[in-house]
Structure formats: structure tokens, C-alpha cells
Design a protein around this nucleic acid. Structure first.
Lengths: 350, 350
DNA sequence: GTTTAGCACTTGGACTATTAGAGTGCTAAA
DNA sequence: TTTAGCACTCTAATAGTCCAAGTGCTAAAC
């Protein structure tokens, strides 16, 4: 257990280090402390903090740097709760416009705003209902053997894809198959639909089409698109600015990670804990992956009532101003929930 | 004018430097030359080359490095035309699969293959007819006030976007407007359509809708998507590996460039000269832009007969093995043209 | 018992020499 | 025209010096 004074000192070390990036020494630290002690006293206390593994030295006579554990302690116990400035708050409230056509636009814009505010990389995932169901599938012929396949879910998601029919297909047969799909699959959860697409559906389709593979492939691909969590990433390039390290190989690995939406959603889902607050994962807490050791991930869920919960997140350097970043994410989460609730009501319940 | 020997020496300098990245000195160079001379002779010749601005010294007693002009001379006169290896050729012929559903898939895959082969960043733009015309516009209602707008061009491009209608709109009025658009605009070039969308069309639409802006915005946005050159970029991340420089700010600038498809198409269009061969732009020849000074851009058009011409390109470091890269791009260009011709015939003329 | 002043000790960074190696340019001979 | 030889230049690496910043410890002060 730390004394009050030790806490203050740890707090000051983290603040100082996250703002300057330089290891902090006892002499300079005394000026930043809210009480008056000598540098020698600070040194004594720092020995205790170091014994507890909260701070490190880079070498025997350098200033101290917070360890991962130190950051964690800071985040858990020493944050400044009033960190979000009036200015940040204003930006958050004003930068979300008010004439979006689709939920996805708002969510995607959110990722951009969040990355601009923090100058880190930001993510946004739109609210997700637990059981999304298929509510319709259509094929609209466009002439020239082109058709567009349209799939609608009851969450309002629309997914479409155009393709060209092979020569000599029987258009009536195709229509029958579309009718079959609607009869058999509408109203079922997407996961269920995917399952049946591999079991009984192909058999039934052979009544109408000799080789159903091509057709079902198309349905399947549109379906997969509709079912996929759609992550929006803002400020990808900001990762380049963290200047430290910058091992190009690691960077490539991280960027590859960002492009695999499945592995990304794994990362963010991990702690969407029930209380819905803001969560911070530091260094290796983010993933087993080595390459993220010097990064921290701040995630938050936002709750849009019956329309489900979404996730926003910010990925920045371990050495980040946590109070501010967390404050921003938290404020943004609330604002986004409010806005989205309005849009959902507007789109669905008017 | 250079003597034969000077050419060989320049060629050897470029080859050596592009493969090792180290300035090349006279002593080492004699071993690489196809004739036997002393290092002193080479030094004398190098003075001539330097006078001609083809090679540089980094400082008064360092080896020589090709200048931009030297690379240019090399590319124009000293390439090894038989550079593409059997292995590369095999990869090119085999990596393009043969069950694509859409032209865009092939083109996008091409960018990936090309970037893998060269380990640089690659671009692919699909064939473009000179005058793409609007061939149809539809609104398909999906229930729940959702509609999907579908736009088809005579080049077979299909663009769709779903959105939610505001409350209380007159669906018949909307249908009238769609009919109006089809009557008035189908068969015209897209550029013409865009123009008229800002002149006489809005006036006509007000006959049916009181405030046409919202609706026309949607049509406009789908139209813009359809009209846009769609670049595919492969191996974005490979830019990170060029190790030199690596100024994060420049990198950000370049990546931002890659994301603006309009500025990118400017870059590539610039020299799609009629003869359709492979073109090399070195350093500041690529653009006025400073940041691309250390890069070379290799572009090539590929010709799919009446279906138009497309572009492929590779962006790598100025210090690249030109013979191989050019050979690959050239071979790929021919293969892609052949494949695409097959697909176009299959899709449109069967 | 805390706190502090004082001091010896450690370390990295900045600066300076020094040296070895690679390369050039020039000259004079082949 | 080519080449051997040599003086000269510059970089990169290494080692030495010095300084500033920081620590740990001890003994005195509070």
C-alpha cells in the first residue's frame, strides 16, 4: 500500500514523463509537487516506488520512468477526473454534424473526429444488436445479363453487390431460387442462415438449378459482408508519428493488424465489460502480441438503448496523457450515444 | 556523347549501386566490368561521367552514386532487355486466377500481385472507355422507408447506395423524378450528366418535389462514385521498408497522396503516351512534389482492344533494379491485357 | 522517526583527437 | 592511352575528456 505522498509522487512522475518524454529526476520533481519536500526525500520515496515495481531507471544514474505497472496504478487510482477541457468538450459536441444519411456515416466520422482530437489512431464500431435477422433478399436485373443482389437485415443494414450472370441461365429458375431463399430464410438470424446455407438449402436449390454453387456463392458473399462487423479506423497515419522505436517491421505488423477487421474486433471486444465504462489496456495487456508493447488501447462502449451497444477506441503510445485521453473518450462516448439514439429514432420509429 | 566504355562503366555503377546501396569506387568496379582495365582508367572515365552530370560524389573522396540524370540515361539506353527471369514470368502467368466475378476483382488482385513481385507499392486502374454514358438509374424500395439507389453505366459499372427516406415524402413524386432522370439523362456522358445536374435538372425536379436538394444529393453522390477512376493499390506498407530517410512526415504526405485517388490518377495519367509501352519517371519527374524525390514510378498502359486502356504502375525507391522491375511490369501488362480481353468477351459478348 | 544537506559515485551525451580504410586526382612512366 | 604510384581528402569508428543530471548513502537537523 502506498502512502498519500508516494501516490502524489507517482502521479507527478507519470504526468511529467507523459508530457515531456524525458526521464524525471528528483530535483526537478520537487517543483511539481503540491507539498514542500527536499529532493532527498523524493529520492527516498522513489526507492520505495521502484521496489514496488511502479517506476524504473533506464540506467543506474538516470531519472525515473513509469513502468507498465506504474501506468496501470496511475490509471486505476490517480487519474484526474476533471481532465476534459471545455474546449475539447466543445469540439466533441460540435464536430458531429447533423445531416447524415446513414448510421455508418456517423460512426465512420466518429473515428476521424476521435483521431483528430487525440492525434492517435481511433476506431469506431457501430451498435450491434444481438440477433440480426435476414429480412429480405432480392435480385434486380439491370439488363445486359447484369444483376444486382441486395440483402437487407432487420437492423437496417443493406448490402449489395452486382455481378454478371453466366450465359444461358434460366432467369425463371433464378427467380424461383430467390423466392425459395426468402421463404426459407427470412426472419432467421444471420448465423442460422449461414449454417443452413451449407446444409439443406443447396439440396433444395438443385430443384431449380443444376449447378447451384455459383449462385449460392454470390448470396454467401453478400451475406458475409452484411454479417461482418464493420470497423472504421481514423488517423491510421498517426501511428507513424510516435517517433520512438519506429521499427518498420513492427509498424507493418501493426498496420496489417488494423486491416484485419476480425482480429481487430477480437482486440476491442475483449473487455466490453457490462458496466460500459472506459477501459484502458496498457502494453502487453492489449494482446499477446509483442509488437503492441509500447501502445495503450483505450476502449469504451456506448449504449444506444434497444438499438444495441457500439465500441469506440483509441490506440496511442503507452506514454500518453491518460487523463485527457480518457476524458475525451468518455465524453465522446456519451455524445455519440445521444446522437445515435436520435438518428435511430428518426430512421426507424417515425 | 558517351563512348562504349563509358556506357559500360555507367551501367556497372548503376547495377552495383542499386544492388548494394553503397557508393561504388573505382577499385571494386574493375572486377564488375566486362573488359580489363585498371582502376586509374576507370577513375579517368568517371571524371567524364561526372562532368556530364551522370554520377555524383557524396563527398570529395567517396565512391560514386548515380544521379537522377544517370538513372535516366541508364533507363533510356542501358537496360538489359532480357531481364525478366523465367521464374518471374511463371509467377505472373500463374498468379492471376481464373474465376473472377467482376473486372474489378481482377484489377485489384493485379495490384497485389505486382506489389508482391516487386516488393514495392503497386497500382492498377481498370480499362476506361473514353465516353462512359449513363445507362440507367433506379430506386428500389426495401421497406421501412429504406431505398437503394442503383446507377448503371454503359461500361457495365454498377454503383449502388442505400439510404433512408425522410418521413412524409411522396413516393409517387420520387418515382416521377426517377423517370425524369432516366428520360433526360440516360445515354449522355457522365460528365454531361454532372453538368446538367447543376443547371436545368433541379428546376425540372421542383415540379414534383418541393425541396429537391436531398434527393439530388443522393443521385449526385452515387454518380460521383460511378464516375470516379477506381484505383487499386497493393502493398501500401511496402513503402515503409525503404529504410533510407524515413522521415515520418514525408511518409504521411505520401500516404495521404495514395488515398486521394484523384491526385493519384493525375500522376499516372500524365504519360499514358500513345505507344502504350512502359514509362519510367524518376525522382522529381514524378510530380512537382518534393516528397517523391527519392522514388521512381514505373507506369504502363495495357490495351484491351475496344474495351479501352488501363494502367498499372509500381512506385519504388529511385535506387531500384530497373531492368527487373521494368521487365516485370511489361510482362504483367501483356498478361493482364490478355486475361481481361477474355473476361470482357465472356461478360459482354457471349 | 522524519527530513534534509552534503557528498561521493555513476552514467550518458557532447566534444575532441586519433586512426584506419576507402576513394580520389594527379603525375610521370610504360 | 593506359597504368602505377602517391599525396590528399573524407568518413566512420574508437577512445579520451568533461560536464550535467541523477542517484544512494550518511550524518546532522528537526
Amino acid at each position: 500500500m502506498l502512502t498519500q505522498r508516494q501516490k502524489k509522487i507517482l502521479q507527478a512522475i507519470v504526468r511529467q514523463y507523459t508530457s515531456t518524454g524525458q526521464p524525471v529526476g528528483s530535483k526537478h520533481l520537487v517543483e511539481k509537487l503540491p507539498f514542500k519536500v527536499s529532493s532527498a526525500t523524493v529520492r527516498n520515496e522513489m526507492v520505495v516506488l521502484e521496489k514496488n515495481g511502479l517506476i524504473n531507471k533506464q540506467h543506474s544514474s538516470s531519472g525515473r520512468v513509469p513502468s507498465k505497472k506504474g501506468y496501470r496504478y496511475y490509471v486505476d487510482h490517480l487519474l484526474d477526473p476533471s481532465a476534459v477541457t471545455d474546449n475539447d468538450l466543445l469540439v466533441i459536441q460540435n464536430s458531429l454534424g447533423d445531416n447524415y444519411q446513414k448510421i455508418d456515416e456517423i460512426v465512420s466520422h466518429s473515428a476521424d473526429i476521435l483521431s483528430n482530437l487525440t492525434s492517435y489512431t481511433a476506431f469506431a464500431l457501430k451498435p450491434e444488436q444481438a440477433d440480426v435477422r435476414l429480412s429480405g433478399f432480392r435480385l434486380v436485373p439491370l439488363g445486359d445479363q447484369k444483376v444486382i443482389a441486395i440483402l437487407v437485415t432487420d437492423s437496417g443494414n443493406v448490402e449489395s453487390q452486382s455481378f454478371t450472370l453466366p450465359r444461358n441461365v434460366d432467369t425463371e429458375a433464378i427467380e424461383s431460387v430467390v423466392r425459395l431463399i426468402n421463404d426459407q430464410l427470412v426472419g432467421h438470424e444471420l448465423s442460422e442462415v449461414v449454417k443452413r446455407l451449407n446444409t439443406d438449402i443447396p439440396i433444395k436449390v438443385t430443384h431449380y438449378l443444376e449447378s447451384p454453387e455459383g449462385f449460392l456463392d454470390i448470396f454467401d458473399s453478400v451475406l458475409k459482408n452484411a454479417a461482418r462487423d464493420r470497423f472504421y479506423v481514423g488517423g491510421r497515419l498517426n501511428l507513424l508519428g510516435f517517433s520512438d522505436h519506429q521499427d518498420p517491421h513492427d509498424l507493418q505488423t501493426i498496420y496489417r493488424l488494423l486491416d484485419q477487421s476480425d482480429s481487430l474486433s477480437h482486440l476491442l471486444d475483449a473487455d466490453s465489460k457490462p458496466d460500459g465504462g472506459v477501459h484502458v489496456r496498457i502494453g502487453n495487456e492489449i494482446a499477446d502480441n509483442q509488437v503492441l508493447d509500447d501502445y495503450s488501447l483505450i476502449t469504451a462502449t456506448y449504449d444506444v438503448d434497444q438499438y444495441g451497444k457500439g465500441i469506440i477506441a483509441v490506440l496511442g503510445p503507452t506514454r500518453m496523457p491518460y487523463s485527457r485521453t480518457i476524458g475525451i473518450v468518455n465524453a465522446f462516448r456519451q455524445e455519440l450515444a445521444k446522437r445515435l439514439l436520435g438518428y435511430y429514432r428518426h430512421f426507424y420509429d417515425s
